[in-house]
């Protein structure tokens, strides 16, 4: 088991002819992800790494039954690409593109909600279910992906793509594998947040412990903490918060677009308190994080 993606998904790459998308398409294929087609308007008929390119999403859905899409197009075209995927009944959309204006993101999420489409991102590095498949640039080249990720019981959700791989690698080097790792995206407004992923992890038999990588700014952590209390969440959740120093520098952005403390809101301190109230262990260092994970699994 895993969440969101497994070996059976049929993946479509929107913007496949772009430099980055072409590269991670190859990495996805190397990891034996079932990539069935690509879309770049105007470039239908080409092939990229043997994958056929089409002009419209509906073509790929009709012909190959694509049900998952990774979107890597320039920010100005991202709204259109996402709406097209949602309209074509894609079930899961991962948006890799960053710097999409909030208005567009809100419109995308609004339509997705109407149609029951799951959205990860924007500004997501991707999703990986080790040993099954990966969607997006997560893990990088095949050889590195295999070093960083291994099959096991820990689910990871992270606001940072880089830290998703870092945490997985940390666990892997301690011989603890992962069920599914999700880079939820570093923008202020993203599709599925910790709060929406937690119930999926709870239902997943493979996942025994959930690790969250959090950053200052936004409300994801507080929302997740509230959910855990309200629904008496049954699995252990361990959090790590990067960027505690940001609390001391209000108004300044660090790392991601969403990482900003304004008017005393979104502080790391506030998030730590919210987590602690919900009985979530918050690790002060990565070394401590590994200890907590080991303890939760024993």
């Amino acid at each position: 088991m895993s969440i969101l993606i497994d070996e059976k998904i049929r993946v479509l790459v929107q913007g496949i002819t772009g430099r980055e998308a072409a590269l991670f398409t190859k990495y996805m294929l190397d990891y034996s992800t079932n990539v069935v087609g690509g879309v770049t308007p105007g470039k239908g008929g080409q092939t990229i790494h043997g994958i056929p390119v089409f002009d419209c999403v509906s073509d790929v859905v009709k012909e190959f039954g694509a049900n998952t899409s990774i979107i890597s197009v320039p920010a100005a075209f991202a709204k259109d690409a996402a709406l097209e995927a949602i309209d074509s009944n894609i079930e899961l959309i991962v948006i890799f593109t960053e710097r999409i204006p909030k208005k567009d993101v809100v419109l995308i999420l609004d339509f997705a909600e109407q149609k029951g489409t799951k959205v990860i991102g924007p500004n997501s590095l991707g999703i990986i279910s080790p040993g099954k498949s990966k969607v997006g640039a997560i893990g990088g080249p095949q050889i590195e992906t295999k070093k960083s990720y291994m099959i096991g019981p820990v689910g990871i959700a992270s606001t940072s793509g880089g830290m998703t791989t870092e945490l997985a690698n940390l666990l892997t080097s301690n011989e603890i594998g992962q069920s599914t790792c999700i880079s939820v995206g570093g923008d202020p407004i993203v599709g599925m947040t910790f709060r929406e992923l937690l119930p999926l992890f709870e239902k997943d038999i493979q996942t025994k412990t959930i690790v969250l990588f959090c950053e200052p700014g936004g409300t994801q952590e507080e929302d997740a903490a509230r959910y855990i209390i309200e629904y008496s969440y049954s699995k252990p959740v361990i959090a790590f918060i990067g960027g505690r120093f940001v609390d001391d520098m209000p108004g300044m952005r660090f790392g991601h677009a969403g990482v900003i403390v304004q008017k005393g809101k979104g502080t790391a301190k506030g998030k730590i308190e919210a987590f602690k109230r919900a009985g979530i262990l918050v690790a002060d260092t990565l070394t401590q994080l590994v200890d907590y994970v080991k303890e939760s699994l024993s």
């Binding site: 940072s160 830290m163 870092e166 570093g186 960027g243 120093f245 940001v246 660090f254 991601h256």
Partner: peptide, 16 residues
């Protein structure tokens, strides 16, 4: 130091 969330983590760790 590495970008995004990593920079936050690394900076914290140095201070810690």
């Amino acid at each position: 130091i590495g970008g995004g969330g990593a920079s936050l983590t690394i900076f914290d760790a140095i201070r810690y």
